[in-house]
Design a protein around this nucleic acid. Structure first.
Lengths: 198, 198
DNA sequence: GGTCTAAACGGACTGCGGTCCGTTTATATT
DNA sequence: AATATAAACGGACCGCAGTCCGTTTAGACC
């Protein structure tokens, strides 16, 4: 298990390191465009970027770390929307409205970035304890509480986030040809009846 | 992708093959007892059983296939109970009763055999299309229909089975110290409100 | 510019799942 | 018993993620 450096703004990385990181991210996006996220190999990435394989792992720690880095902008933007954005997803709307909107937007997000998210999940040692997953879970749990759900909101949030996992959603869409509209309709149904029961 | 032979009763395997299969299964259980399911490697299994690695893959196709074979007795027994067993899980009870009982029993089952199931899932290329998963999904879907759920029972069954996945359940119990009782209580809550909404 | 050091680098190496293919063997047939 | 043949066998081999460690270099300090 390797040490993954935590960057604070105070101690910037060396110039060559920063340059290599940019080259690696650019190359990774190119490779994924050509071969898909599952087709990217760490060795191929190193070669394309013109660095050694050790450098790739030094920068990103693991394949999962690389995928999460590639996702981080999209993830941060999404987090911003459900935490600070405008209603109905952001604060200001009723809890049930926010729950519905959060799920609907999440489904759209997964359909756009899900391949990367799926690759990150597949490579991660424990996908449930990664910061983005914890934040998302807490968000759902909080909305459930605010909506008056008293019966174990923590586990209910677990069930809800299980429903929205990239692997499952992509499987439903790609293998079973479920339309996005059906996914969102079912989400609304599910979350409504959970809240209504409270 | 290798060819996985389907055994019909009509064409029995050769005697040496049958003997090796037994030795391999016994050795696999021993190794799992010593190192855990995640600690078992195919090469170590081959060595312990005194056969070549090729033989292991010929018998089971893949690591996932091995794990599923090891699970198959427990899986079949569970299937028998929800399909043909006595109420409340088997036929005869009300649909909601059966849903609740099925989930409660499933949670207990996962807590007992989940490590193997988790290992099988992790190694499988697509865990959702494996016969046992399909059967379980169909069972939940049918019960939802019988309980009067008209709004997309297929996707509802997907959400429900996501809730009961070994990886999630084991994570809840082992990392977050959630008690089995809490898991079953939350399941009852969830499934009740889904049905009540119908 | 010279020196020093912590950081970054690179690629050989390990361990694992999975495949390939030349060799061996169980079993049916004569 | 001899033969034929399909099946089973075994282990060298491949690709990949991840590690290790000797070498190089950025950049700070003089």
């Amino acid at each position: 298990m390797s040490y993954i450096p935590i960057r604070t703004g105070a101690e910037p990385e060396r110039r060559d390191a920063a340059r290599n990181r940019e080259v690696l991210l650019r190359s990774a996006r190119e490779l994924i465009g050509e071969c898909g996220a599952d087709g990217l190999t760490m060795a191929a990435l190193a070669q394309r970027a013109g660095v050694g394989k050790g450098t790739v792992f030094r920068r990103f720690g693991s394949r999962a770390g690389l995928m999460m880095t590639l996702l981080s902008d999209a993830e941060a933007e999404f987090q911003g929307r459900f935490m600070f954005g405008p209603p109905p997803m952001g604060p200001g709307a009723e809890p049930l409205e926010r729950l519905i909107a959060s799920g609907v937007e999440r489904i759209a997000w997964v359909l756009e970035f899900g391949e990367l998210a799926r690759a990150a999940d597949a490579a991660a040692h424990n996908r449930f304890d990664v910061p983005a997953a914890v934040l998302w879970h807490r968000h759902l749990e909080m909305l459930l509480r605010n909506a008056g759900v008293t019966a174990d909101p923590w586990l209910m949030a677990t069930s809800l986030s299980a429903t929205l996992e990239p692997e499952r959603l992509l499987h439903a869409v790609r293998v079973h040809r479920i339309s996005p509209a059906r996914l969102t309709a079912s989400w609304c149904e599910l979350v409504s009846c959970v809240v209504r029961a409270a």
